[in-house]
Amino acid sequence: AEDTGVRVELAEEDDGKKSSIALKLWVEDPKKLKGKYKDNGAIEFSYDLEKEVPEDVAQEMVETGFFHESDAKIVGKSIRDRVSLIKWKRERTIPVTE
């Protein structure tokens, strides 16, 4: 995944079963953002792996005031990259019961 300057990580352990998972997002490199950024720290939120779209969450963050509109794409991509990785790992994991 491209280094967007925005870091998204799991905020909880992934048991591979839950549809909603906690993620944590923060800015590692503010210079990569296009708009003004006020360092809020890490933003934790719940994300539904089955129903939600990363770009919608990014837009909500913009509307909440965490990011400028011009950075919605970068934030959305960062979330998307992490979600893709989570799903990929889940597909690779063979359940213990099997």
Partner: peptide, 27 residues
């Protein structure tokens, strides 16, 4: 450490807290 909660109009909760020191990138 201080933590605040912000709720978006659509209902999503965002919990804001300081980035853990161990996760800060070397400047």
């Amino acid at each position: 450490s201080s933590t605040t909660q912000v709720v978006h109009s659509a209902g999503r909760r965002f919990i804001v807290s300081p980035v853990p020191e161990s996760r800060l990138k070397d400047q």
